[in-house]
């Protein structure tokens, strides 16, 4: 536990970081006071999901050095598998376990597909490429994204494949706002997944090995870690998380070929804001972005939702090029 405290205190060493966090808190309070508590609830739900997608992105970059521009398509795969599984289970819909089975299946599909993509593409590239790894893999992930989008279009068409809601019970009331059960579901799933990821990376043998690879590759080999397998696992986890997020938000993002574009851009914004490769920072930054979006949407207009966060990020990066929590590129958790 002391380790977590140590990490946290390091995050807040910089006055810019502390100032920004204070600013965000102020914004949250302002939004709640002027707009209503629903802004806070809204930001918590979307923030949790952005955090999930962005955490995977940060992990992939920190461990593998791959700037994954296909992450949105794994979100898309999540929405698609969620839709297919959910409609296939139409006979037993209404049973409380169905949404859980659905998102678990999406998680598994994303995980397996991620593992296959790493084995088929990045593992092969690793054997051959010595220089320009980041640039080369960047181009390749864009290619993977195009292939996945077109495969979706070819096989399932371009129409929206969505659901109204996983749960049809009455909304619950929190802080004077009524929150649909699906949103409660989404935030719970995200919270459990993020906590699970945090535990995995901090305390499990495999998680330590993943961090070891991100901190020192030859060092990892020297202590007997199968570095290639850890990379495959990392990509699979990250893809699995994105797919899980997609399936969980199916009520809000019906599946269609380009559904991954928005999550991809948001996740990249989050990761750049947090500092490339920093998983813990990505989670915090996910909430910051969601809060900005919700406030912008309410006070300025929903057309500006994407503009304001991006503009702010340009500003922040001008002051702190390594991102909010970044000391330097590469490394999961710490540097």
């Amino acid at each position: 536990m002391s380790l977590a405290v140590q990490r946290l205190s390091r995050e807040f060493r910089s006055p810019v970081t502390t100032g920004l966090i204070a600013g965000v808190l102020a914004l949250a309070i302002f939004g709640v006071v002027r707009g209503g508590t629903f802004i806070l609830v809204d930001s918590l739900v979307t923030g949790a999901i952005w955090a999930l997608v962005a955490a995977g992105l940060a992990l992939t970059f920190g461990v593998m050095g791959v700037p994954n521009f296909a992450q949105g398509e794994f979100f898309m795969v999540g929405t698609l598998s969620g839709y297919l599984v959910y409609t296939a289970l139409s006979g037993v819909q209404g049973r409380p376990y169905v949404p859980f089975v659905t998102i678990l299946m999406a998680l598994v599909v994303g995980f397996v597909l991620g593992a296959l993509v790493d084995l088929a593409v990045f593992s092969q590239m690793r054997r051959r490429i010595r220089e320009g790894w980041v640039m080369n893999t960047f181009v390749v992930t864009v290619g993977i994204s195009v292939v996945m989008i077109n495969a979706h279009q070819l096989i399932w068409g371009t129409d929206y494949k969505g659901i109204v809601a996983y749960f049809d019970g009455p909304p619950i009331h929190v802080l004077g706002v009524s929150v649909a059960l699906d949103r409660v579901f989404a935030i719970s799933v995200a919270a459990v997944s993020i906590a699970g990821l945090w535990w995995l990376l901090s305390y499990s043998r495999i998680g330590r090995a993943i961090r070891a690879v991100s901190q020192d590759e030859p060092g990892a080999l020297m202590v007997g870690i199968n570095v290639g397998r850890m990379r495959t696992l990392t990509f699979a986890i990250s893809s699995g998380l994105a797919a899980l997020a997609g399936a969980t938000l199916l009520f809000q993002f019906p599946s269609f070929p380009f559904v991954g574009v928005k999550p991809l851009y948001v996740a990249w914004t989050v990761v750049i804001l947090a500092g490339l490769g920093n998983v813990g920072g990505a989670v915090v930054a996910g909430f910051i972005i969601a809060l900005l979006e919700a406030n912008t949407g309410f006070f300025i207009g929903s057309a500006w939702e994407d503009v304001v966060p991006f503009a702010l990020i340009v500003l922040i990066l001008a002051v702190r090029p390594t991102g909010l929590f970044g000391r330097a590129v590469r490394s999961v958790w710490e540097q």
Binding site: L3, R208, A209, R211, A212, Q215, D216, P218, G219, A220, L221, M222, V223, G224, I225, N226, V227, S331, W333, E334, Q335
Partner: peptide, 29 residues
């Protein structure tokens, strides 16, 4: 990693420690 598994330990010139982990975690690794 397989060579290590056979019982050969290396202390390299640059040490290759896991700098973001504690002393204890490094030893555990």
């Amino acid at each position: 990693d397989l060579v290590n598994g056979l019982g050969i330990g290396l202390v390299s010139e640059s040490l290759n420690l896991f700098t973001g982990m504690t002393v204890y975690e490094n030893l555990l690794m």
